[in-house]
Structures are given as C-alpha cells and as structure tokens.
Design a protein around this nucleic acid. Structure first.
Lengths: 363, 363
DNA sequence: GTGAAAGCGCTAACAG
DNA sequence: CTGTTAGCGCTTTCAC
C-alpha cells in the first residue's frame, strides 16, 4: 500500500542515531540524550550534536523505532461504524470527534482514524494500527472490526454501543429513558396514532417497515433501545405498540428521512405524530411533510433525536445529547486512566427540547 | 503522556512471535508467514500456529515492530493550522478532511491527526508521528510545525499554503484570480464604495483595520492573495484601493464576522458592498447587517468565499471552491505518487456563485 | 515448505 | 556527564 510513498524526499537516505554518534565520536546514548534529555549533557556538546545532525541531514530519532523501544505510540486509534469519510458527513459524529480531539490535544496524543474498508472485510487495518488504545464509536453487535480491536492488548473505550463488553469502559447516554420521556411528552399532548422513522437496525439493508421482532433483534443497540423506550412510553399511555408502524432506513440522510416519511404516511395517513430516532431523519421528514402540504405542528407533530445545530435552526422538537462531551469523556477515560481496576460506564445526561414541531394532534 | 494507558487489558503481558515459535517448535519465519503469507505454509500448520496463538493470547504481530522492520507506518499525517479540534468546527476544513479520508480509505491508509499544541510551541508531536508522509493544511508562512514536517524524510503535500516550497507537492485554487472575478462582478454592478472583512493576516491578533502594508505582508498567503485579487479587480474599475477599508478578525466565527461588520460600517457608513474573504465571516456580516436593519441586497451587497452549505442555504453570493476535491487530491498526490520527479502543483477550479446577497448599489 | 542469520533504529538501566 | 550492554518484536533474503 504505502510503497507508493517513494518521493524525492523519502529517497534522501538519512543518517541514523548510530552513524551520527560514530561521526561525533560519542556514544549513542549521548546523541539520544541530546534529543530526549537535554539536561543530561552539557549545552556545548548538545549544540555540537545538533549541529552535526543538521549537517548530516539526520532528521532526529525515528519515531517508529522509538515507539518500539518505549512501547508507546503516542496516538489513540478511532474505530467508526461506517467508512472513515462518513464521520465527516454526520454532524453528531463530527461533534464527537471534536470532543475526542480536544481530549487528545490536551494529552499531546495523536488521533489515528483507522481505515475500515467499506465492505468491512479487511480487519487488518485494526491489527496494523500503531496506537496506545482505541476509542470505538457506535459499532453494531458482532462487528469484526470491533472484535479485532478487542484482540489488541490495549485499553478500549466504547462510545454508545455495544454495551456490556468485559474490561471495556463506555460512555453513552440512557437512550431508552430519553425516549420514554419523549413518548410521555407526546402522549401527554394527546397523540395515540404515532409512527416511527428509525435508522438501520442491522447491517443488511432493509428500507421499509420493521416488524417488532426485527426491532427487538436489532444489531444496533442504540436504535434498539430508543425503540424500546418509545414502546415503553407509549404502551404506558395505552397505545398498542404492535400497531405502531416503524419505517427503517439504511442510509442516514435527509433524503432517506423524507422518503421514509412518504412511505409511512402513504400506508398510515392517520398518524398524528412521527417520531424519528435521529435529527437527520426528522429534518428529512419535516421536508417531506411540508412538501406534502402538511402543517407542522398544526396538522402533524414531528420529533428528532440528537440535538444537532440544524435541528435547532429548524425549531425541531428533539432530545439533545451532549455529543461533544461524549467524545471528550471517551478520550479522557482512555487517556487519564489512573489505577482504576473495574471498567466503568459513564452515562451523560440528555435533555428533552420541546420546540416548534410538536403540539397536540389535530382534532 | 501515554503512560496513563496502563489498563487491565494492557497489563496482560502478551506472548511474542518468538515465544510462540518456541512453543510450537517452529521458526519465527513460519509464524510470521502464518500471518503475512498464508500461501507459504501448509494450511494445517497455519491452523496450528493460529490456534496456539489464540491459546497463548498472542495478539498477532506487533504493528510497531512491523513498521520498524518494513519501514512503513501505513498512515498519513495531517497537520492543521489550528488546534486539532478546530478542524471539526470549520465547515471548509471538514470537507477537506472528508476528501482526504476518502483517499486514505481507498488506499487502506490510516489518517493521523497530529496534535499541535494551541500555543504552537512543542514541535515534538510532528517529530513523533509514525507516518509515511504528511498532508499540510493551510499553514502560515514560517510556521515551526511545518518546518518540522520538512525535516522529516517523508513526502509532503501542502493544501493551499504556503506555496513554492521546494520538493513539495501542492493542491489549491487560484485565490487571486477568483477574487478578481468577484471584484469584476461587483464593479460591474456599479459598486465603488466597498469594504472588506478578512480572516487573520498574521499570527498576532489584530482585530481591527488592516493597513495596505499589513495586507501585503500577511503571513497567510491565501488571505494575501484574496486581498490582492480584490485590489486588482477594483483598481481596474477605478477604485483607489488605498481608500478601501479592510477589517481583520483573528477568530473565524460568525460572531467575529458580525462585529467586524459593525466596526466597518460605523466608520464607513457609505459602503455599498461588503466583501468577505470567507463564508463564515460573510454569514456573520449578513446577520449583523440585518440586525442593523439593513436590506440585503437592496441597500447593501454582501459576499463570501468558499461555498459552504450554510452559504447556499442563506443565498449568499460567493466563490465556490471544491474543498472535498482538494482533500482527495492531496491524499492522492501523496499516496499515488508514481515515478514523478518534479514536484507539482494542482490548481482546482473555482466558480463564482451569484445568488441573492449581491445587487446594484442603492442610489 | 521451513529455518538461520541479520538487523530495522532506538532507549534505558547501570556503571563509571 | 558519558559509555556499555541489551534488547524492543518483527521481517526477509537466502539456503536447505
């Protein structure tokens, strides 16, 4: 792969620490000290070492050799659900990344984005990553890449899912409780005919209605729990969950949200509230609803989940979760680990944001 | 720094390839082959090796040791102007990152975000990064981190700035020509009283008016060239550039754009057009203008630069640049380098997007 | 299909 | 303040 990296610059065969030492007539230790422990040698000698290094074109200690010797890479690996580039398209992931980057820079650690091939086939990238630990962002159950991470003898912190992995710290939110709260809000408003739009429940594509069984066996724990929260909340209000239509979309885009909305209302024109398990889907649904001439919230209630900036601009009723804090906490959990023995789970607070897209059902 | 990473998992002292070989009674080569060249040994033996590895808890070849031996890290380093986390706050940087990530994942390379300390003091992070090459995103002239990158004997690709670095490939746009085109558009509309809002011109904070001398000596080449383009374009239309107020802001936020706008119009209430060197600043200016009761574009023209999604939503007249393509091209330039001898510069096209915030001056 | 030899380039005791 | 000693864990010709 990287054999392509043979430019002019890399061709410049460089001197090594040993050759520099030989040239100077000092020991390797001295040269090493000149770089790593300036206080261990006289300023004059240090200057001479550094000057000679410059003259010989010695670029300083090789980072990989140093890592091998010191047993630390100075970097945190990040494993993401989707292809690497997806991280930069999803506003929630971006906020998470920002928080994680903050923790890394506080610590002087690099952040290595591990390239997981789209087809999730080559687990090798995980095995090849020179890192001191991994942060894993929202992986489905039974993911091979995640399994590969667990093979590595380094600490791991998971964000969101999967939960309950032995010896692994986790940071997340209480997805289920957050959705119960939202359901109560909606039920309190009087909604009984509801429909749901959710993200993918499995790694196999299913763009359409999801049965209760499929919901219960979703490989994405976060979606599973959000749906479970809705079920609990609405069931408590007397709604028969088995009769609640749930439309699933594999792609997480506004367009997907919009056409999922269309699919939902075509079959269930009577719903008074459309609950979406993400803001992106909700924003799409909102667009779809308006395109269909529906008045939100007068005629129809639509809600999201996440609390992204665009949701705020759109006045979307949603559940806000602290994505940036999750990233920072994940980084800190990984980096600042003291003598902690047991693995721990950090649950961050969520907040129901009642805004302008929810109201009582039209009568 | 990373000594903190001593969790339970990392404590599990792992077997090495050598100890595995000893246990199996085969040579290290054989074990190595079992992992790296499955075709070099019998399936039966390979199975035995892998099984024993599992039993002994051998996690597979150590990536750092392998990198030392093979002389490749399997990762690209990314150096950014600002603190690492800033990258996730700037929509242009995010798009660039997405493109770069795309190129990396195509190549199976990791992407290492190098932690540059906010105070830009410790250049060590660059020296310590185990990477096969660097992509440098928009650095000021004479930056120490960039200098440290050039010390490393690996290929380097610069995006945007600085230009004209020997032996370094570059991808960018023609900032100056793009701005000439915008100036011509505005001059063609009839604007002669213009004001400018620009990003930081130097690493020292100057939130206020920038003299022509300061403009000409800006350490940020991109800003320098955009201003030069405006100067050329407006001068050609008969405007005395020396009389054109240029307000500089260190922070790149909408809030900064809004108050820069206020500062500009307070001193120069007669301007009919406010040209901003970025969309973020322009969006802020737009907000400031509306807060001040100005009608855009009826009463005042405002333009941006970059073509971010928010600018499109706002109907902002701007210059679109292909940020994602820049990222991808930078990655490809670094990764796909054939036998190329000379360094090359790739200039991508820009496009003037005339939308709803520019019009003829009020009369 | 398998093994022996030879480092990759560096750092960390520890002794002087 | 400087040098000696000993690897860190792995891959890769090149014979057998």
């Amino acid at each position: 792969m990287a054999e392509a990296l043979e430019g002019r610059r890399s061709t410049r065969r460089t001197a090594t620490l040993a050759s520099l030492a030989a040239e100077l007539g000092v020991s390797r230790t001295t040269v090493s000290n000149a770089y790593n422990r300036p206080d261990q040698l006289s300023p004059a000698l240090r200057r001479r070492v550094l000057d000679t290094a410059r003259r010989l074109g010695y670029p300083g200690p090789d980072p990989v050799a140093r890592s091998l010797r010191t047993r630390k890479a100075g970097a945190v690996g990040l494993l993401l659900t989707e292809a690497l580039s997806y991280a930069f398209r999803d506003p929630v992931a971006i906020q998470f990344l920002e928080g994680l980057a903050l923790a890394c820079e506080d610590n002087g650690s690099g952040l290595l984005l591990v390239p997981v091939s789209p087809e999730a086939e080559d687990v090798g990238a995980v095995a090849r990553a020179g890192v001191d630990g991994f942060v894993v962002y929202s992986m489905p159950d039974d993911d091979e890449h995640f399994a590969a991470v667990l093979e590595r003898p380094v600490p791991v912190v998971v964000c969101d899912q999967p939960t309950d992995v032995p010896d692994v710290d986790r940071v997340g939110i209480d997805d289920q409780a957050a959705m119960v709260e939202l359901a109560e809000h909606l039920a309190g408003l009087g909604h009984r005919q509801v429909g749901v739009l959710c993200m993918r429940l499995s790694t196999d594509r299913n763009d359409g209605f999801a049965s209760v069984s499929r919901q219960d066996h979703a490989r994405y724990e976060v979606q599973r729990r959000r749906l479970a929260g809705l079920r609990d909340g609405f069931t408590a209000a007397g709604v028969d969950w088995g009769g609640v239509p749930v439309v699933e979309r594999f792609d997480h885009t506004e367009a997907a949200g919009a056409n999922a909305f269309d699919q939902l209302v075509e079959r269930h024109p009577d719903v008074t509230a459309v609950v979406c398990t993400s803001d992106i889907l909700a924003l799409g649904a909102l667009r779809g609803a308006r395109a269909a001439g529906r008045d939100v919230p007068g005629d129809l209630t639509i809600t999201g989940f996440d609390g992204v900036p665009a949701a705020e601009r759109a006045g979307l009723t949603t559940v806000r979760q602290p994505s940036l804090d999750k990233g920072r906490a994940a980084g800190e959990l990984l980096l600042d680990r003291g003598d902690r023995q047991r693995s721990r789970t950090l649950l961050l607070p969520t907040e129901l944001m009642v805004r302008a897209t929810s109201g009582p059902p039209a009568r």
